[in-house]
C-alpha cells in the first residue's frame, strides 16, 4: 500500500512558488521605504512619530486580538506592519497621535480580523481606517498639514528644549494646505517639479511621486503587482481631468497637477493593487482601475471632500467580488461565450 501514499490528493493550487506572505510583505515594506524616507524628510521628525505609532498600534492590536481569540498569532508575517505603515502614510503629519492609534486599531480589528484575518478581508484595511477617521474626526484629519521642509526655517533647532517645536506639534505655526484644497483656503504656491519631488503639503507618504514610483517599480519588477491596474487608474484620472477639468472649456485641464497631487500615485500603486482586495484577472484589474479613476475624478471635481482616492478604492473593493464573478477566464477548450 505504499502507492497510496505517493498519490497526494489536494485541492488546487497544485503548483506552488517559493513565494510566501512574509516575503511579499517585506518586499512591500522595501518598496514603501523611499516614500517613507521622503515623508520623514519633508515633514520632519513628527511624521516619523506618526508612522511609528501607526505601525505599533497595528501590530499590538493584531497580536492582542489573536491571542485573546486563541488564533495563531501571525504578526510575524509583517502584514500588520504594512497596514499600519500605509495608514500612517495616509494621515496628515500633524494629526493627534491618539487618532493615529485608533485608526490603526480599527483597520486591523474591524477591517481585517473581523473578516477572519489576512486574505479574507473585503476592504483595504488601511483605507477603511483612514475613511473611518475622516468620518469621525473630519476637522483633525483635514488640519495638520505641515509645510514641507519646515524644519529648515531659520530659528529651528532640533536640539531646542522646546519639545513641542522639535516634534512639530505646534502645527499652527507651520501649517500648509494640500494642492487639492477646496473652498476658501488657498494652497501655497508650488511648481510641477515641487509636486513631483514632493515639496508640497499633504499626507506623510503621498506627496513624493518620485519616491513612490521608485518603490512601485520595485514591486512591479518583483511581480507582486501588475502595471495594468495603476496605469488605468492614473490614465483615467488624467484623461478625464484633461477633458473636463479645465476652466477654459474642454481639453484644458491641468492633468499633470492632478496626477502628481494628492494620494493618486500612492493609492494607485500601493493600495488599489492590494492582492487581497483587487480582482484576480488582469481584465478585472483594468475594470477596477478605470472605475477607481472615474470615481476619483468625480469626487475631486464635483464632490465635497478634496481627495477621492481612498473612497474610490474602497467602493471598487466592494465591487471586486462582482467583477471577479463576471471576468472568469475562459477555461481551456471551453467555447467562446
Amino acid at each position: 500500500m505504499t502507492v497510496d501514499r505517493e498519490l497526494v490528493v489536494t485541492t488546487s493550487p497544485h503548483i506552488r512558488s517559493d513565494i510566501s506572505v512574509n516575503r511579499v510583505m517585506i518586499d512591500v515594506l522595501v518598496a514603501l521605504a523611499p516614500a517613507t524616507a521622503a515623508g520623514i524628510y519633508f515633514f520632519g521628525f513628527r511624521s516619523a512619530v506618526v508612522l511609528a505609532v501607526a505601525v505599533i498600534s497595528a501590530v499590538v492590536t493584531e497580536a492582542a486580538i489573536q491571542r485573546v481569540a486563541k488564533w495563531e498569532v501571525a504578526v510575524g508575517d509583517y502584514s500588520a506592519c504594512v497596514t499600519g505603515l500605509l495608514l500612517g502614510m495616509n494621515l496628515p503629519p500633524g494629526v493627534p497621535l491618539w487618532i493615529v492609534a485608533i485608526g490603526s486599531a480599527f483597520a486591523i480589528a474591524i477591517a481585517k480580523l473581523a473578516f477572519g484575518g489576512l486574505g479574507k478581508n473585503i476592504f483595504n484595511p488601511a483605507l477603511a481606517g483612514r475613511v473611518m477617521l475622516l468620518a469621525a474626526w473630519p476637522v483633525a484629519m483635514t488640519k495638520g498639514w505641515l509645510k514641507p521642509e519646515w524644519w529648515r526655517q531659520a530659528d529651528f533647532s532640533f536640539w531646542s528644549w522646546n519639545v513641542a517645536d522639535r516634534f512639530g506639534i505646534s502645527v499652527d505655526v507651520i501649517s500648509s494646505a494640500t494642492p487639492l484644497v477646496k473652498g476658501g483656503a488657498q494652497a501655497d504656491a508650488f511648481t510641477l517639479m515641487d509636486l513631483f519631488i514632493g515639496r508640497v503639503g499633504g499626507c506623510i507618504g503621498e506627496t513624493s511621486a518620485l519616491a513612490l514610483l521608485i518603490g512601485a517599480a520595485y514591486l512591479i519588477y518583483r511581480r507582486h503587482i501588475y502595471w495594468q491596474l495603476p496605469a488605468c487608474f492614473v490614465a483615467t484620472v488624467g484623461v478625464l481631468v484633461w477633458f473636463f477639468g479645465g476652466t477654459g472649456g474642454y481639453f484644458t485641464g491641468n492633468f499633470l497637477m492632478h496626477i502628481f497631487a494628492g494620494g493618486l500615485i500612492l493609492g494607485a500603486f500601493f493600495m488599489a493593487t492590494d492582492m487581497v482586495t483587487s480582482p484576480m484577472t488582469i481584465r478585472g484589474q483594468i475594470i477596477m482601475g478605470i472605475g477607481c479613476g472615474l470615481l476619483t475624478f468625480l469626487v475631486r471635481l464635483k464632490g465635497g471632500p478634496p481627495e477621492g482616492v481612498s473612497y474610490s478604492i474602497l467602493i471598487m473593493n466592494a465591487l471586486t467580488p462582482l467583477i471577479d464573478r463576471y471576468t472568469v477566464p475562459r477555461r481551456f477548450g471551453e467555447g467562446v461565450a
Binding site: G116, G303, S310, I315
Partner: peptide
C-alpha cells in the same frame, strides 16, 4: 472564506454595510 464563528451572518454583514457606508461618504456634497 472562514469568517470567525462569532462574526458569521448578520454581524459581518453589518460591518460590511458600515464600511460601505463610509466609502459612500465620498459622494457627499457632490
Amino acid at each position: 472564506t472562514d469568517v470567525p464563528r462569532s462574526m458569521e451572518g448578520a454581524p459581518i454583514a453589518f460591518i460590511v454595510a458600515g464600511i460601505l457606508s463610509l466609502a459612500f461618504m465620498g459622494f457627499s456634497g457632490m
